[in-house]
Design a protein around this nucleic acid. Structure first.
Lengths: 343, 343
DNA sequence: ATGAAAGCGCTAACAT
DNA sequence: ATGTTAGCGCTTTCAT
């Protein structure tokens, strides 16, 4: 009973069958130039000996890893985990593994991750940029190692990469249009940091739509910052201290919207009667809270699928075009203001 | 302008410096037997040439991958994504990458994943078993490839592995004790499939606690099944069709509890006044819904940390002991019934 | 149809 | 202190 069984290789199979290693290798790959008989023998023996190819060796030899690296700020934001679901689905279908990494929104961690991934661990990278990142060298460096890159959602003009993004400008624009259509005039905005494309685009959509409605926002109508629930609470407090309440608040993030909503209500402000609230991302909790939160669905899983398909195309030497996904407004109770149209 | 730059290896550095490959290799690893001068020269040149070691080659040579495989049913359940956060934190700290895979609760997908991982891709595996899985050969097979295994939360007696789990029996027991203490007698239970340890343990905790309170549950007090929101809706409908409402429902899952809660309220049943509801897992939405949902916190991130530490100990040849984490009851509005004690 | 041999990029005895 | 050499397990010319 020698329990010290070594990992078995093609040569162990070869030895048992009295053939060469190459024959085993070929038989295992169903190479056409191998006789039916030998092929079957080899495959049966391999199974019996519980042979498993060593992926490391295969990949080293072939020069690729059949693995896609995914770098996101957090995996437990629904937006990102849904996107990852989409990426996995597509990637697995064509034989790729998916290596998932979290930057925790930190520039430095993101840099380290990319450095590590570019040591031959992955053939390509799909990423969504951390918001602390303000220098994009680590992304652009991937090109030196011939690692194709696809960015989704959090993209940057300073990075040369394929992109998959929502039409954030449009989404924001339509939110404002809608709010205006139901009688809101003082439409505030929580904006997210402006070096991040998606947040800047939404900010611009908000601004342009307001102006198209003939409204000039006051200086205190907008605030930029991180996208946490706490940030929303802080914004709500500022608002409560202002002279007049807004008619509506459009937040670039559902989490911020949640903080705003809770803090306003905690202070006796009625939502949506006094202040309507519109979020962005359509997190699952949106329909669970009271009042339920209007938001913009970005089709995150579809984004993930598109990003994966794009990367795979790139890996196959093609030159896929950037993808823009139109968002969809989801109307819920937090904007069911009086005078509104039926939806 | 020759853009066709090849991936550079230690031999390219060696050639430039007129030394041997081994010298470069050693210099890069700060091997003590390398002169200060050469070491610095090599490291500088490596940096200048933008050299990156090929992880595949290193790992093939060393016989390990410095990667931990994580297999969970879904990554976008907060419980799992938090656990993964913990795993990553610990693993990265000691130089391991984390390869995350989703079984989607499917036996077959789980089997394929483990097969793929055992081709030298990972040094060890941390998993939480899919609930469709009823045969555990694929887990037990890992031992043949000398891949240590740690199971967390969803464990099984039929799998030989280190385990990290919550004290589910206790958690359930205390929930029932509490409900009884605030006057509930007819305490129903939504139980999850009974071949899954955690759900069986909670079922038993429920049963034993009831009996300790001198209560014998009716045959229709309990139902087993999947843990989706829809399952909760279905259970609520059954209950509504029964002759008498329960005083309380203890659900083994927050998602099921959510379905129950919404469906009951949709039908005019007051929660918690008529029926109190207690969930399990302490999902973030618990405190966002109305009424907020009482639940049991399992300290998922801590579980992930413990699992990672355990696996790493195993990889280091140690024999770590199983970990049991005591859960904590979180009391919210869904059980704030009349006659209750102050909490 | 099969085998011999080179080599993917690196590490680590074993020299010297 | 540094070089030589033999692999890690596999694929793939190039022979035969």
């Amino acid at each position: 009973m020698n329990e010290k069984k070594k990992k078995i290789s093609i040569y162990d199979i070869a030895a048992v069958l009295g053939v060469s290693g190459s024959t085993v290798s070929r038989a295992l790959q169903n190479h056409p130039a191998i006789s039916e008989k030998v092929r079957e023998q080899v495959q049966r023996t391999a199974r019996e000996m519980n042979y498993k190819p060593n992926a490391l060796a295969v990949n080293l030899k072939r020069g690729y890893s059949k693995t896609i690296g995914v770098v996101v700020p957090y995996i437990n934001r629904n937006f990102f985990s849904s996107a990852i679901e989409g990426i996995e689905e597509i990637a697995n279908k064509v034989g790729y593994d998916v290596l998932i990494c979290q930057s925790n929104e930190q520039h430095e961690k993101e840099r380290k991750i990319l450095h590590s991934l570019s040591q031959g661990k992955v053939d390509g990278v799909i990423a969504s940029i951390a918001y602390e990142t303000n220098d994009y060298t680590h992304f652009n460096n991937l090109a030196e190692d011939r690692i194709p890159l696809v960015l989704f959602d959090r993209v940057s003009d300073e990075v040369k990469a394929g992109t998959v993004r929502g039409n954030d400008y449009q989404g924001a624009y339509r939110v404002v249009e809608y709010l205006f259509s139901v009688g809101c005039k003082r439409i505030f905005h929580y904006a997210g940091f402006q070096h991040v494309t998606v947040w800047r685009d939404r900010y611009r959509g908000w601004l342009d739509a307001l102006q198209a409605c003939g409204i000039t926002p006051g200086a205190d109508w907008v605030r930029t910052g991180g996208i946490t629930q706490d940030a929303g609470v802080a914004f709500a407090r500022e608002i409560l201290q202002g002279k007049a309440l807004p008619d509506a608040i459009f937040s670039t993030s559902d989490w911020v919207a949640l903080g705003i909503l809770l803090e306003l209500m905690r202070n006796g402000v009625k939502v949506p009667e006094e202040v309507a609230i519109f979020g962005y991302a359509n997190e699952p909790f949106d329909e669970l809270i009271t009042p339920s939160l209007s938001s913009v669905d970005q089709f995150s899983k579809r984004m993930g699928c598109a990003a994966a398909r794009m990367l795979i195309d790139k890996l196959n030497g093609e030159n896929p075009e950037d993808v823009i996904i139109e968002p969809e407004l989801i109307f819920r109770d937090s904007t069911r203001v009086s005078g509104m149209l039926s939806v």
